[in-house]
Design a protein around this nucleic acid. Structure first.
Length: 293
DNA sequence: CAAGTGCCTTTATC
DNA sequence: AGATAAAGGCACT
Protein backbone atom coordinates (compact mmCIF):
# COMPACT_ATOMS: atom_id res chain seq x y z
CA UNK A 1 0.00 0.00 0.00
CA UNK A 2 1.46 3.30 -1.08
CA UNK A 3 1.88 6.20 1.33
CA UNK A 4 1.00 9.63 0.03
CA UNK A 5 1.36 13.03 1.60
CA UNK A 6 0.34 16.64 1.45
CA UNK A 7 2.65 19.45 2.52
CA UNK A 8 0.81 22.21 4.36
CA UNK A 9 2.21 25.71 4.35
CA UNK A 10 1.93 28.49 6.95
CA UNK A 11 -1.14 29.95 5.32
CA UNK A 12 -3.18 26.76 5.67
CA UNK A 13 -3.22 25.78 9.35
CA UNK A 14 -4.45 22.28 10.10
CA UNK A 15 -4.55 20.28 13.32
CA UNK A 16 -5.65 16.69 12.73
CA UNK A 17 -6.08 15.79 16.42
CA UNK A 18 -8.17 18.86 17.23
CA UNK A 19 -10.28 18.27 14.12
CA UNK A 20 -11.04 14.64 14.99
CA UNK A 21 -11.41 15.10 18.76
CA UNK A 22 -13.69 18.13 18.90
CA UNK A 23 -16.89 16.11 18.83
CA UNK A 24 -18.08 16.76 15.27
CA UNK A 25 -17.39 13.20 14.12
CA UNK A 26 -17.79 9.91 15.97
CA UNK A 27 -16.25 7.03 14.05
CA UNK A 28 -12.52 7.71 14.10
CA UNK A 29 -10.12 5.59 16.13
CA UNK A 30 -6.45 6.09 16.87
CA UNK A 31 -4.06 3.14 16.81
CA UNK A 32 -0.50 4.16 17.62
CA UNK A 33 0.37 7.20 15.52
CA UNK A 34 -2.36 6.60 12.96
CA UNK A 35 -5.97 7.65 12.76
CA UNK A 36 -8.39 5.26 11.03
CA UNK A 37 -11.95 5.60 9.84
CA UNK A 38 -14.19 4.31 7.08
CA UNK A 39 -15.50 6.70 4.46
CA UNK A 40 -17.20 5.85 1.18
CA UNK A 41 -16.78 2.17 2.01
CA UNK A 42 -12.99 2.50 2.19
CA UNK A 43 -10.54 2.65 5.05
CA UNK A 44 -9.00 6.07 5.53
CA UNK A 45 -5.68 6.01 7.36
CA UNK A 46 -3.89 9.24 8.18
CA UNK A 47 -1.38 10.92 10.48
CA UNK A 48 0.12 14.35 10.85
CA UNK A 49 3.72 15.30 11.55
CA UNK A 50 4.12 19.04 11.82
CA UNK A 51 3.24 20.43 8.43
CA UNK A 52 2.87 17.13 6.67
CA UNK A 53 -0.22 14.98 6.31
CA UNK A 54 0.61 11.38 5.50
CA UNK A 55 -2.14 9.02 4.40
CA UNK A 56 -2.80 5.67 2.83
CA UNK A 57 -5.54 3.97 0.84
CA UNK A 58 -7.19 7.20 -0.37
CA UNK A 59 -6.16 9.84 -2.87
CA UNK A 60 -5.20 13.38 -1.98
CA UNK A 61 -8.32 14.78 -3.62
CA UNK A 62 -10.44 12.93 -1.11
CA UNK A 63 -8.28 14.05 1.81
CA UNK A 64 -8.46 17.69 0.70
CA UNK A 65 -12.23 17.53 0.34
CA UNK A 66 -12.94 15.56 3.52
CA UNK A 67 -10.78 17.76 5.75
CA UNK A 68 -11.93 20.92 3.97
CA UNK A 69 -8.38 21.93 3.13
CA UNK A 70 -10.06 24.06 0.46
CA UNK A 71 -11.36 26.42 3.19
CA UNK A 72 -9.20 29.50 3.60
CA UNK A 73 -8.88 29.22 7.37
CA UNK A 74 -7.03 32.52 7.77
CA UNK A 75 -9.90 34.27 6.06
CA UNK A 76 -12.33 32.37 8.31
CA UNK A 77 -10.37 33.49 11.39
CA UNK A 78 -10.31 37.10 10.34
CA UNK A 79 -14.08 37.04 9.83
CA UNK A 80 -15.10 35.29 13.06
CA UNK A 81 -12.59 36.98 15.40
CA UNK A 82 -15.19 39.33 16.81
CA UNK A 83 -14.09 39.39 20.46
CA UNK A 84 -11.46 38.16 22.93
CA UNK A 85 -13.34 35.01 23.83
CA UNK A 86 -13.48 33.51 20.32
CA UNK A 87 -9.94 34.70 19.69
CA UNK A 88 -8.80 32.71 22.72
CA UNK A 89 -10.65 29.59 21.52
CA UNK A 90 -9.13 29.99 18.06
CA UNK A 91 -5.62 30.36 19.44
CA UNK A 92 -5.98 27.20 21.54
CA UNK A 93 -7.32 25.01 18.71
CA UNK A 94 -5.68 26.72 15.77
CA UNK A 95 -5.97 24.41 12.77
CA UNK A 96 -9.25 22.79 13.77
CA UNK A 97 -11.36 22.39 10.66
CA UNK A 98 -14.99 21.53 10.03
CA UNK A 99 -15.15 18.20 8.22
CA UNK A 100 -17.06 17.53 5.02
CA UNK A 101 -18.86 14.42 6.22
CA UNK A 102 -21.11 12.03 4.36
CA UNK A 103 -24.67 13.44 4.72
CA UNK A 104 -26.36 10.09 5.35
CA UNK A 105 -23.98 9.04 8.11
CA UNK A 106 -24.01 12.55 9.54
CA UNK A 107 -27.81 12.61 9.63
CA UNK A 108 -28.13 9.30 11.46
CA UNK A 109 -25.26 10.25 13.78
CA UNK A 110 -26.95 13.43 14.95
CA UNK A 111 -30.38 11.82 15.24
CA UNK A 112 -28.65 9.41 17.61
CA UNK A 113 -26.78 12.23 19.34
CA UNK A 114 -29.81 13.80 21.02
CA UNK A 115 -29.63 13.80 24.79
CA UNK A 116 -26.54 11.62 24.81
CA UNK A 117 -22.87 12.05 25.75
CA UNK A 118 -20.21 11.87 23.05
CA UNK A 119 -18.89 8.57 24.42
CA UNK A 120 -22.43 7.22 24.28
CA UNK A 121 -22.92 8.41 20.69
CA UNK A 122 -19.69 6.73 19.64
CA UNK A 123 -20.78 3.47 21.25
CA UNK A 124 -24.13 3.54 19.44
CA UNK A 125 -22.63 4.28 16.04
CA UNK A 126 -19.83 1.69 16.30
CA UNK A 127 -22.43 -0.80 17.48
CA UNK A 128 -24.73 -0.03 14.53
CA UNK A 129 -21.81 -0.41 12.12
CA UNK A 130 -20.62 -3.66 13.69
CA UNK A 131 -24.09 -5.15 13.45
CA UNK A 132 -25.28 -3.81 10.08
CA UNK A 133 -22.19 -2.67 8.20
CA UNK A 134 -19.68 -4.60 6.06
CA UNK A 135 -16.56 -5.82 7.80
CA UNK A 136 -13.21 -4.68 6.39
CA UNK A 137 -9.90 -6.11 7.55
CA UNK A 138 -7.02 -3.65 7.37
CA UNK A 139 -3.60 -3.44 9.08
CA UNK A 140 -4.60 -6.43 11.21
CA UNK A 141 -7.64 -4.56 12.53
CA UNK A 142 -11.36 -4.98 11.90
CA UNK A 143 -13.42 -2.05 10.67
CA UNK A 144 -17.02 -1.75 9.55
CA UNK A 145 -18.66 0.45 6.95
CA UNK A 146 -21.55 2.58 8.07
CA UNK A 147 -24.82 0.75 7.24
CA UNK A 148 -26.65 1.88 4.11
CA UNK A 149 -30.20 3.32 4.22
CA UNK A 150 -31.47 0.10 2.65
CA UNK A 151 -29.79 -2.03 5.31
CA UNK A 152 -31.27 -0.01 8.17
CA UNK A 153 -34.68 -0.17 6.49
CA UNK A 154 -34.44 -3.95 6.54
CA UNK A 155 -33.18 -4.09 10.12
CA UNK A 156 -35.64 -5.18 12.76
CA UNK A 157 -36.31 -2.35 15.23
CA UNK A 158 -35.48 -4.70 18.12
CA UNK A 159 -32.01 -5.19 16.63
CA UNK A 160 -31.56 -1.44 16.23
CA UNK A 161 -32.55 -1.04 19.86
CA UNK A 162 -29.87 -3.58 20.81
CA UNK A 163 -27.31 -1.05 19.59
CA UNK A 164 -28.43 1.18 22.44
CA UNK A 165 -30.57 3.54 20.36
CA UNK A 166 -33.43 3.56 22.86
CA UNK A 167 -36.23 5.95 21.87
CA UNK A 168 -34.15 6.92 18.81
CA UNK A 169 -34.82 3.51 17.23
CA UNK A 170 -38.06 4.61 15.60
CA UNK A 171 -36.54 7.86 14.27
CA UNK A 172 -33.57 6.09 12.70
CA UNK A 173 -35.74 3.41 11.14
CA UNK A 174 -38.30 5.83 9.70
CA UNK A 175 -35.65 8.25 8.44
CA UNK A 176 -33.85 5.35 6.77
CA UNK A 177 -37.07 4.49 4.94
CA UNK A 178 -37.50 8.04 3.68
CA UNK A 179 -33.90 8.30 2.50
CA UNK A 180 -34.06 4.81 1.00
CA UNK A 181 -37.10 5.83 -1.05
CA UNK A 182 -35.02 8.81 -2.22
CA UNK A 183 -37.66 11.26 -1.04
CA UNK A 184 -35.01 13.65 0.20
CA UNK A 185 -31.95 14.27 -1.95
CA UNK A 186 -28.88 15.52 -0.10
CA UNK A 187 -27.24 16.83 -3.26
CA UNK A 188 -30.18 19.14 -3.86
CA UNK A 189 -30.00 20.46 -0.29
CA UNK A 190 -26.37 21.48 -0.84
CA UNK A 191 -27.56 23.91 -3.51
CA UNK A 192 -30.55 25.14 -1.52
CA UNK A 193 -30.65 28.07 0.89
CA UNK A 194 -29.90 27.51 4.58
CA UNK A 195 -33.49 28.15 5.66
CA UNK A 196 -35.09 25.97 3.02
CA UNK A 197 -32.67 23.09 3.51
CA UNK A 198 -33.24 23.27 7.26
CA UNK A 199 -37.02 23.11 6.83
CA UNK A 200 -36.62 20.08 4.54
CA UNK A 201 -34.45 18.25 7.06
CA UNK A 202 -36.86 19.01 9.89
CA UNK A 203 -39.58 17.03 8.14
CA UNK A 204 -37.61 13.90 9.02
CA UNK A 205 -38.54 12.12 12.25
CA UNK A 206 -36.04 12.78 15.01
CA UNK A 207 -34.73 15.92 13.31
CA UNK A 208 -35.40 19.19 15.11
CA UNK A 209 -33.65 22.55 15.04
CA UNK A 210 -30.37 21.39 16.55
CA UNK A 211 -29.97 18.16 14.58
CA UNK A 212 -30.81 19.97 11.33
CA UNK A 213 -28.17 22.63 12.04
CA UNK A 214 -25.52 19.99 12.71
CA UNK A 215 -26.27 18.09 9.50
CA UNK A 216 -26.24 21.34 7.50
CA UNK A 217 -22.91 22.44 8.97
CA UNK A 218 -21.04 19.15 8.92
CA UNK A 219 -22.24 17.65 5.66
CA UNK A 220 -24.25 20.06 3.52
CA UNK A 221 -21.93 23.01 2.97
CA UNK A 222 -23.78 25.43 5.23
CA UNK A 223 -20.82 26.95 7.08
CA UNK A 224 -23.07 29.68 8.42
CA UNK A 225 -25.19 27.20 10.43
CA UNK A 226 -24.83 27.64 14.19
CA UNK A 227 -26.11 24.65 16.20
CA UNK A 228 -27.16 25.42 19.77
CA UNK A 229 -26.50 22.63 22.27
CA UNK A 230 -26.05 22.79 26.04
CA UNK A 231 -22.39 23.79 25.74
CA UNK A 232 -22.94 26.59 23.26
CA UNK A 233 -25.87 27.74 25.34
CA UNK A 234 -23.49 27.92 28.30
CA UNK A 235 -20.82 29.73 26.30
CA UNK A 236 -23.34 32.31 25.13
CA UNK A 237 -24.91 32.93 28.54
CA UNK A 238 -21.45 33.26 30.10
CA UNK A 239 -19.69 35.35 27.48
CA UNK A 240 -22.33 37.01 25.30
CA UNK A 241 -25.11 37.75 27.79
CA UNK A 242 -24.81 41.47 27.00
CA UNK A 243 -26.45 40.85 23.63
CA UNK A 244 -29.63 39.42 25.15
CA UNK A 245 -32.52 40.37 27.38
CA UNK A 246 -31.99 39.49 31.03
CA UNK A 247 -35.09 37.22 31.06
CA UNK A 248 -33.77 35.05 28.24
CA UNK A 249 -30.45 34.56 30.03
CA UNK A 250 -32.26 33.69 33.27
CA UNK A 251 -34.55 31.21 31.49
CA UNK A 252 -31.75 29.47 29.64
CA UNK A 253 -29.46 29.17 32.65
CA UNK A 254 -32.16 27.80 34.96
CA UNK A 255 -33.84 25.34 32.61
CA UNK A 256 -32.36 22.26 31.05
CA UNK A 257 -33.87 22.53 27.59
CA UNK A 258 -34.48 25.46 25.29
CA UNK A 259 -37.86 26.42 23.91
CA UNK A 260 -37.80 26.61 20.13
CA UNK A 261 -38.25 30.39 20.39
CA UNK A 262 -35.14 30.72 22.54
CA UNK A 263 -33.27 28.35 20.25
CA UNK A 264 -34.09 30.61 17.32
CA UNK A 265 -32.87 33.66 19.22
CA UNK A 266 -29.51 32.16 20.18
CA UNK A 267 -29.13 30.70 16.69
CA UNK A 268 -29.94 33.98 14.96
CA UNK A 269 -27.46 35.78 17.20
CA UNK A 270 -24.67 33.36 16.33
CA UNK A 271 -25.29 33.58 12.62
CA UNK A 272 -25.57 37.36 12.53
CA UNK A 273 -22.76 38.10 14.98
CA UNK A 274 -20.17 35.77 13.47
CA UNK A 275 -21.33 35.96 9.86
CA UNK A 276 -20.69 33.73 6.87
CA UNK A 277 -18.49 31.28 8.80
CA UNK A 278 -20.51 31.21 12.03
CA UNK A 279 -20.32 27.41 12.07
CA UNK A 280 -16.56 27.60 12.51
CA UNK A 281 -17.01 29.96 15.46
CA UNK A 282 -19.53 27.53 16.92
CA UNK A 283 -17.12 24.62 16.73
CA UNK A 284 -14.27 26.54 18.40
CA UNK A 285 -16.56 27.83 21.16
CA UNK A 286 -18.07 24.40 21.67
CA UNK A 287 -14.72 22.63 22.00
CA UNK A 288 -13.31 25.36 24.21
CA UNK A 289 -16.33 25.30 26.52
CA UNK A 290 -16.03 21.52 26.95
CA UNK A 291 -12.31 21.39 27.59
CA UNK A 292 -11.30 24.68 29.21
CA UNK A 293 -14.16 25.63 31.52
C1' DC B 1 -23.95 1.12 46.85
C1' DA B 2 -28.37 3.68 45.87
C1' DA B 3 -30.04 7.61 44.04
C1' DG B 4 -29.59 11.71 41.47
C1' DT B 5 -27.85 14.27 37.62
C1' DG B 6 -26.48 15.11 33.01
C1' DC B 7 -25.93 13.98 28.40
C1' DC B 8 -24.17 18.26 21.21
C1' DT B 9 -33.00 17.31 22.07
C1' DT B 10 -37.36 15.89 19.87
C1' DT B 11 -41.95 14.92 20.14
C1' DA B 12 -46.44 14.21 22.22
C1' DT B 13 -49.60 16.20 24.99
C1' DC B 14 -51.81 19.21 27.55
C1' DA C 1 -49.89 28.73 20.87
C1' DG C 2 -46.83 27.81 24.28
C1' DA C 3 -45.24 25.29 28.15
C1' DT C 4 -44.24 20.77 30.05
C1' DA C 5 -43.22 15.89 30.46
C1' DA C 6 -41.52 11.72 28.70
C1' DA C 7 -38.23 9.24 26.22
C1' DG C 8 -33.04 4.29 26.64
C1' DG C 9 -29.48 3.95 29.07
C1' DC C 10 -25.06 4.80 30.75
C1' DA C 11 -21.37 7.27 33.24
C1' DC C 12 -20.27 9.92 36.89
C1' DT C 13 -20.76 11.74 41.67
Amino acid sequence: MRLMSIQLNESEPFDLDATLCCGQTFRWEKHGEWWYSVAKGKILKIRQTNNRLVFENVDSGFVKAYFRLDDNLLKVYSQISKDDHVRRAISVFRGLRILRQDPWECLISYICATYKSIAGIERMLFSLSRRFGEKIHFDGLDFHTFPTPRRLTRAHPDDLAKCGLGYRTKYVHETAEIINKNELKFERLKNTSYKEAKAELMKLPGVGLKVADCVLLFSLEKLGAFPIDVWIKRAITEHYARYFQKELILRTTSKRSLTSMDYEKLNAFGREYFGEYAGYAQEYLYHYERTHC
